[in-house]
Every structure is written in C-alpha cells, then in structure tokens.
Design a binder for these strands. Structure first.
Lengths: 114, 114
DNA sequence: TTGCGTTATATTTTATTTTATACAACGAAA
DNA sequence: TTTCGTTGTATAAAATAAAATATAACGCAA
C-alpha cells in the first residue's frame, strides 16, 4: 500500500425518531417504481427481491405523513404501482440535500502527511 | 404515524480506492486503544469481539501509509498496544471533518408539507 | 523456569440477514 | 369464466456476518 489516495465519502438519510426512512437506495427505488409503474420491475432492475422492495415501500408509506406509493393488484398487466405527488416532492427534496452533501464532500478532504 | 418529525442524519468515512478504511467506529476504537493501552480492553469496552477489533486495527495499519497502532505481545501485563503519532494525527483530522459534517447536518433539513 | 495476560490466528458455532419459493387475492380483458 | 402478471403474505432455504472457542507465541517478573 504505497502512495494511498484518501477520499472522503459518506451517506445521508432521513429519520423519524431513530428510524431510517429514506436514503439514496429508497429514492432510487421510488424513481424506478415511477418509471416502470411496477414494484416488481423496480426490484428486478435493482437486483433486490420483491419482498425487500415491498417492505421498503411499505415502511416508507407507514412513516411518512402520507403514502409515497399507491399500488393496485389485478387488472390490466396484473397490477401496478404509482408514486404519489407527495412521493415526487420527497424525491425532489432528497435530491436537493444530496447535491448539497456532494458539494460538502468535494469541498472537504483529509490532510495527512505521507 | 401522525405529525412525524423528519431529521437529516448521516455518516462520513475515509476511503482508499473503494475500501472504507476509517469511520467513526474505528476512530473510537483507536481512542480506546490509546486510553487503555490494549486492543482487548478497547474491544471489551465497545462490546465487540477481540477478533473484530484486531481485524479493524490490522486493516487500518495495512491501508494507511504508516501504522496507526503498534502492538507487542508478552512482557509486563501480557502485552500492549499504542497509537502512533500518525494515528493521533489521523484521529484529529477525522474529528475536524466530523465536526464540519455535524454543522452541515444541523444547517440542512427537509422541507415537506404535512 | 513458571505463571500471567495479551497478541495473533484458526476453527467452529451461533445468530442474523437475505434470498428463494410458494401461493392466495385481485381485476381487467379476452 | 379463464387467463394473465402483479400485489401481498408466509414460510423455507441459503448466504453472510458475528460471536464463541481454542491455542500458540510472546516476554517480563516472581
């Protein structure tokens, strides 16, 4: 390990109480649900199990003031899921925070003697 | 879930390449090693196994340019571990970054309609 | 030279998390 | 009313991670 390059990195998320309810993975999931109209397709795209995706969606719906995703079963295509207006707002707000955080990361670095 | 309070939280760490080599847990471990002079005691205090603590120390020593911890076995007390000058420097630098990050977290928040 | 407590390491066991599998419920459309 | 693919849910299997256990190496001090 000669001449290592040290990089600052990190993650941010939203909590209520001490429970994490939104991070960048969940945001990506929401975006893929919106794009595909399907929890299953979003899960496949992100290579996670349907159960995990469903659990995440359910958790978000339970912990935000209003549901972020509304799903229907049966009907054309077997069922579908849509991201609510509130969900879109949440996505947008998180993107703003994420961008500021990226700026923080690039603006700060470790200063270590080699 | 009526009237939820959304809080921004997060973590930062140092990487080389794509490997995490220092975060707040490792920093605490270093500090406890320095305070106790023992990897084992530090591990006990943090309720982690000796093996896990040793692996973390070993990983840090391998990935920073110079060792952060020097250990000895045998002798008075059975052996000991000390944090190097470079290790102290690393701890200090991380604290600076961490403090700035805390300021970032308190300065930013989500804006969501209830 | 024996005992001591720690470091260092390997191996086994346990616990936790994740994934896979199965299937009922559903509603539109053929 | 049958088919279809998804949602929703439970259970089993598999994969990971963590912890427990064991033991050698070590060097000082009694």
């Amino acid at each position: 390990m000669s001449n290592p390059i040290f990089k600052l990195n990190g993650r941010i998320w939203i909590e209520t109480g001490d429970e994490k309810i939104l991070g960048h993975g969940r945001v990506e999931l929401l975006e893929r649900i919106q794009a595909s109209g399907s929890i299953r397709q979003a899960a496949l795209q992100m290579k996670m199990s349907y159960k995990q995706a469903w659990d995440l969606v359910n958790h978000m719906n339970e912990h935000f003031g209003q549901p972020l995703v509304i799903s229907h079963r049966g009907g054309k295509g077997g069922g579908n899921a849509v991201v609510t207006e509130h969900g879109l707002k949440v996505i947008g707000e998180f993107h703003l925070l994420h961008q500021k955080f990226q700026e923080f990361l690039t603006a700060n670095s470790i200063n270590l003697p080699l």
